[in-house]
Design a protein around this nucleic acid. Structure first.
Length: 444
DNA sequence: TCCTCTGACACGTTTGAATAGT
DNA sequence: AACTATTCAAACGTGTCAGAGG
């Protein structure tokens, strides 16, 4: 797949985010994603390109959401402010791409969209949507697992990719009118709300509030013309770092180009990646999280490279090429390996929170998912894998929708889950990985 | 009073079955 | 009879808005 020339070669697998410019546009303002009880799709969508896979080997693609930090936020007069500590994490769920598992050739031949991924704030959700807290910040992680089926995933290599520009704040109603406008402008489903749209009827009925919105919209239009993205960013997040001394520092280093991006992204890069001890565990050689090299502004925040960073020139150069795509390649050998799994090791919190890792989350974490899996360790996992095509399909009913040309996946075992959590992601961000299990739920 | 969340609503897109045409 | 193109309605995905509730 044509990853842009900005993709620097770090390994075999290259993952490219589609529409990075759109993502960045949102990110600069502070992306918000609506979460609803029945579940809401993301916009922009998570859409990626993959290359460097072994054409005949099968892979499984997964997405999950991880908190950016341990804070809750509030929208106060045109900017986000910290509003206290985060609520206990809801059950962590993982979205399995409906076509998984499929050969590398299949994944590489076209873009891979996670269109049906839905976000919800309903902690009792029965549809397998990803559960998030409103007014909290998250970012998606993309996982690529080489595995013949979901059973063999346990022995496979995880490769995880994140894109700084995809971080967002979960909300039940849009807070920033600039985001609303952007969504309306870019989401075809919201065409009816565009100014030039045909829905004058509705808009002409405006109440004072609506009028205010309209004015705001006009202002926004002007803003868009007059303000640089950096200004956008600053206007939304000013004062945000000054609120709580013990909360993650949000201020950008002076003169760093990160100013172009929202503190969401930049902050995460600081807290999660920059200071992580690299390659502390030999297993890291097989399990990595890849921070996608983004435009130059992200460079200082590049995630640890296990002591073998690509030359800055190559990465910087690539990031400037403006290919219109964020991409990243994994350096991890693209082969299935058997993790050095020691079942006697503690399952959770086996390593104390790294001082370099993300802010520890407050309060008791909800490990429902992990517990489900762990308790069923002797056999197949007992929790459900949900399918939008058959809501109540129990685990094991993986007869996939659509691409039935691929053998139906098998079961995930509990052991697999714990491995995924404690081996698949055992690297510098130990606290993060151990707190956010990968496979408490799967769905498609 | 403020903030957050919810559900009904209008409007647009997507999807798939039914029908017509070749 | 088989295939393709078109039509149409239902389902679905959006943001808006008023009101509930803490």
């Amino acid at each position: 797949m044509a990853a842009g020339p900005d993709a620097y070669l770090q390994g075999n697998i290259r993952l490219t985010l589609e529409d990075p410019e759109l993502w960045k546009t949102f990110c600069e303002i502070g992306t918000e994603m609506i979460i609803t009880k029945p579940g809401r799709r993301m916009f922009p969508h998570c859409k990626i390109n993959l290359s460097g896979l072994i054409p005949c080997a099968k892979y499984i693609l997964l997405v999950d959401m991880v908190p950016e930090d341990g804070c809750r936020y509030k929208w106060n007069k045109e900017k986000w402010e910290v509003a206290g500590k985060a609520e206990p994490q809801p059950p962590c769920r993982t979205y399995l791409h409906p076509e998984s598992p499929a050969p590398g050739s299949h994944w590489m031949k076209q873009s891979i969209a996670f269109l049906k991924l839905k976000l919800t704030n309903n902690t009792l959700d029965q549809h397998g949507h990803i559960i998030l807290h409103s007014m909290h910040r998250y970012h998606p992680r993309f996982h690529i697992v080489q595995a013949e089926d979901l059973f063999s995933v346990r022995w496979s290599v995880f490769q995880t990719f994140t894109f700084p520009e995809t971080s967002f704040t979960a909300v039940t109603a849009y807070q920033n009118t600039k985001i609303t406008k952007l969504k309306i402008d870019h989401n075809p489903f919201a065409k009816g709300f565009r100014d030039e749209g045909t829905s004058k009827k509705r808009r002409s009925n405006k109440n004072p509030n609506l009028e205010k919105r309209s004015k705001m919209s006009d202002m926004l239009n002007r803003d868009s013309e007059e303000d640089s993205p950096a200004d956008f960013c600053r206007s939304s997040y000013e004062g945000y770092d000054a609120d709580e001394g013990d909360l993650p520092k949000r201020k950008e280093p002076d003169g760093v180009k990160e100013e172009r991006y929202s503190p969401w992204a930049a902050d995460r890069e600081h807290s999660v990646r920059t200071e992580s001890p690299a390659g502390a565990d030999p297993r890291d050689m097989y399990n990595t999280e890849q921070l996608v090299p983004a435009p130059a502004s992200y460079q200082p925040y590049r995630f640890h490279e296990y002591g073998k960073s690509p030359s800055p020139s190559s990465s910087v150069g690539s990031s400037h090429s403006g290919s219109g795509r964020s991409s990243f390649e994994s350096r991890v050998p693209d082969v299935a390996t058997v993790p050095d799994h020691d079942p006697s090791k503690p399952r959770t919190h086996e390593v104390g929170p790294s001082p370099c890792g993300p802010q520890p989350l407050p309060g008791p974490q909800d490990y429902t998912g992990v517990l489900n899996m762990t308790m069923s360790q002797a056999g197949k996992i007992s929790h459900h894998i949900y399918s939008p095509y058959g809501a109540e399909q129990p685990l094991g009913q993986w007869s996939g929708p659509g691409p039935a040309q691929y053998p139906p996946p098998h079961h995930l075992t509990a052991d697999y889950t714990t491995q995924a959590v404690h081996h698949g992601y055992h690297h510098g961000n130990v606290a993060e990985w151990s707190q956010y299990p990968l496979f408490s739920y799967s769905c498609w």
